[in-house]
Structure formats: C-alpha cells, structure tokens
C-alpha cells in the first residue's frame, strides 16, 4: 500500500534530515537569509508584543472606563479572529489605503510587507499578552500591596517595585507559551511574500524539486528555533526564581 510505503520512506534516515539540501553555497546562503529573516520577525514581534501587553495591562487597571473598554475590545477582536485574515486585512486592505507618492511620482506603500507582518504579529500576540499580564497583576495579593502602602510607597512605586516584579514571575509560563506560538505564527508572513524561512524553503524546493528533504530541514529548523526560545525563557524563569518558593 502506498500509505505504508510513504510512511516507511519518511523514516529513512537520509530522507529524514538530509542536510545536503543546503550544502551548496547558493542554497545555503538563501536558507541562512531566510532563517535570519524569521529570527528578525520573531525578535521584533516578541519585543513589540510585550510592549503591547504591558501597556494594555496597565491601561486595564486605569481609571478611565473608555480606555478600558477600548483595550477590552482590542483584545476580544484580536483573540477571536484568524491571524491570517488579520494579516491580509492589514496588508491588502489598510496597506492599499496607506500609500504615499514616491520619488518617481507613483503611489508607493507606506509600510513594507515586512512592516505589516511585524505590526500584525505584534498585535495578535500582544492581545493575549495583555490578558496574561493582567492575570499576573491580579495574582499579586491585596495584602502585599497593603504592606507597601503601609510603608508609605506611592502607587507608581508599588507598581514598579512590588506588583510588576511579582506579576512577571507568575506570568512567565503562560507568556512563554504565547511567545512560542508567536514564533510559529511568523510563518504566516509567507502569505504576503516576506522572504522568511518558509518562503525561501518553498522557493528552494520548487526549483530543486527536493520537497521532502527541504521540508524536513524546515521542520527541524522551526523546532530548533522554538527550542532555543524555550531554553532562553527557561533560563529567565530560573534566574527570576525566588529561593524558598516552588521547586
């Protein structure tokens, strides 16, 4: 049966991870460029999504009802619509409207496809980060805040010295999951032709007709990237671990 054969083929070691695919200089150069683009997408989006998260969570604790509702709507919208459609909406719909006249007199997009990928990914992941940080802030017991109040801390000091450091610690596991998802979601940039890892790999396999080998290299690359991120987060979590609590 074909299915069985295919499956057995998959298990052949030389097919499973045949790095010969990227052994020639040209392809290796492209692969590395794609990997670098994916890393750039990931790092910038992670940074911006964390910023969105912290700001959003701070606003959700703010007295202004209008602001709180606005952030609530933002979160609800971005958490409950497909990230791909969000990306298309930004790139094809908003991007078409946002144009400036270039040097040659023709309208040019104001923001590149890379820029839209960053914006879209940051907002998508940022929406959940808002939730994560808010939950972290709420996990800080009222009594700990009161102790700081009794010592004469101002609201801002309480937030920066007590609440935030504790909130970050409880939020880390959930945050890690979300950031791993964000790295995986960078593949969507393929759809708007950002030359990231998946896009480059697709180019290589359609030129060299080495789908299977390239595909395996690709999967392993992503699992590797995620592993690096998980490792970094783990180190961070460990560095922040307070002696006397938990493991």
């Amino acid at each position: 049966m074909d299915l069985a054969n295919t499956f057995i083929d998959w298990l052949r070691p030389d097919w499973f991870l045949n790095l010969a695919v990227v052994s020639d200089d040209y392809n290796r150069g492209r692969y590395v460029a794609g990997l670098w683009m994916t890393i750039k997408l990931s790092v910038v989006s992670i940074f911006l999504s964390l910023l969105v998260g912290v700001l959003g969570a701070a606003v959700q604790g703010a007295p202004s009802r209008t602001l709180r509702v606005a952030v609530g709507l933002f979160v609800a919208f971005f958490r409950n619509t497909p990230p791909l459609v969000q990306l298309y909406f930004f790139y094809f719909a908003i991007g078409t409207v946002l144009r400036i006249t270039g040097e040659n007199g023709l309208p040019q997009p104001l923001i590149s496809n890379f820029g839209w990928a960053i914006i879209s990914l940051s907002l998508f992941a940022g929406a959940l980060n808002v939730e994560i940080f808010r939950a972290g802030v709420e996990a800080v017991p009222r009594s700990t805040v009161e102790a700081a109040e009794a010592l004469g801390y101002t609201r801002l000091q309480i937030y920066t010295d007590i609440v935030l450091p504790l909130a970050v610690r409880v939020s880390l596991p959930a945050l890690g999951t979300n950031l791993v998802n964000l790295v995986k979601t960078t593949t969507l940039a393929y759809a708007i032709a950002v030359p990231e890892l998946l896009y480059i790999s697709a180019q290589i396999w359609s030129e060299d007709l080495n789908v299977r080998e390239m595909m395996n290299v690709l999967l392993v690359s992503y699992v590797g990237l995620v592993a690096v991120l998980v490792w970094v987060l783990h180190r961070w979590e460990k560095a922040l671990r307070i002696p006397g609590y938990g493991e």
Binding site: R68, G72, E131, A135, G136, E138, A139, P141, G246
Partner: peptide, 26 residues
C-alpha cells in the same frame, strides 16, 4: 504536575478563568 510560576504567597494565576470580565460583559 507542578503549577509553574505559582508561589504560595501569590494567588493562583487564572488566565481565562476570570479573564476578560469586560469582554464577558461585552
């Protein structure tokens, strides 16, 4: 399974449990 990130001095973190009370009302 240890609840990672949880500390006995902190309240349990409830992400979606009490999350988005606002959106619930929405």
């Amino acid at each position: 399974p240890k609840v990672r990130g949880h500390m006995p001095v902190m309240l349990p973190m409830r992400l979606r449990a009490d999350g988005l009370p606002l959106a619930d009302r929405l």
